[in-house]
Design a protein around this nucleic acid. Structure first.
Length: 258
DNA sequence: ATGGTGGCGCGGCCA
């Protein structure tokens, strides 16, 4: 069972790249973020032809998330029932696996712009709401995976310039504490369960040759619950799509269970 | 501190 996450920064623009990536990487489940389209424009047919059914929680211009799956998604929930939010950022569903059902929560975390801003305050409120939601979901679904664009670089090694960017957005103590609070619920950062190359990132700014200079951040994550931890056999970042023409600024992360 | 690049949608906003 393979589960992946990818912030595509407009599904309309990136659909051909998503289809190409899925053809080469036929994961069982893929969480997408930043669709930037409404549900009536969601490309169900093209994805079905590729072997994926999808559930979407879209929004015009900004945000929007979806779960793609090779098998049926059950008990789909859009948004965080515990946090009133005008922005479409969370979709959850359950997929069957040989060892039992797995609950997948796919999130596009708030960016937060800048510490001290209104958007940063929203980010912290949103993070607290997510914490409460994940805690409740874990009680119902011990076999749980939390994927998405977290917009948090959890540790210094997850940033190309941890000292220069200390306490700036993605790097603040508040954001890192919120990430740690998720781990304290009993979740593990699948990527850090394995030895990984140094300077591994999942996002690079479009500007200033960010990717070419590997000036990136590891802000896209896959967290697995205690009950699933023992079955995780690999977790990788696939940098290849970042080299495409017209790439997303993010690249996929993939976890293998079993 | 500013500006740099990209998407949306056609003037800024958001990342």
């Amino acid at each position: 069972m393979r589960i992946a996450t990818w912030n595509v920064n407009s599904l309309s623009v990136r659909l051909p790249q998503v289809l190409e990536w899925l053809a080469a990487n036929p994961v069982d489940v893929l969480g997408l973020q930043e669709l930037k389209l409404t549900d009536d424009k969601f490309p169900h047919e093209a994805l079905a032809e590729a072997g994926y059914q999808a559930v979407a929680f879209g929004q015009k211009t900004y945000n929007g998330v979806a779960l793609l799956s090779r098998t049926e998604l059950k008990d789909v929930v859009r948004a965080n029932p515990q946090f009133a939010d005008e922005q479409s950022r969370i979709i959850a569903g359950t997929v069957a696996s040989p060892a039992g059902d797995i609950r997948v929560i796919n999130c596009y975390f708030v960016n937060g712009q800048e510490p001290g801003s209104d958007k940063f305050a929203y980010k912290l409120r949103w993070l607290a709401g997510l914490d409460a939601y994940v805690k409740a979901e874990l009680a119902l679904h011990p076999r749980l995976v939390l994927v998405g664009d977290f917009n948090v670089a959890p540790e210094d090694r997850d940033s190309y310039d941890p000292d220069g960017l200390r306490e700036t957005i993605h790097h603040t103590s508040e954001e890192r504490n919120a990430f740690q609070a998720l781990l304290n619920l009993g979740l593990s950062d699948a990527y850090r369960m394995f030895e990984q190359p140094e300077k591994s990132y999942s996002w690079w700014d479009y500007r200033m040759l960010g990717f070419q200079k590997n000036r990136g951040l590891r802000i896209d994550h896959i967290l697995v619950s205690e009950a699933l931890k023992g079955s995780v056999s690999a977790c990788t970042i696939d940098r290849a799509p970042r080299k495409n023409k017209q790439p997303s600024d993010h690249t996929p992360v993939v976890v293998t269970l079993g």
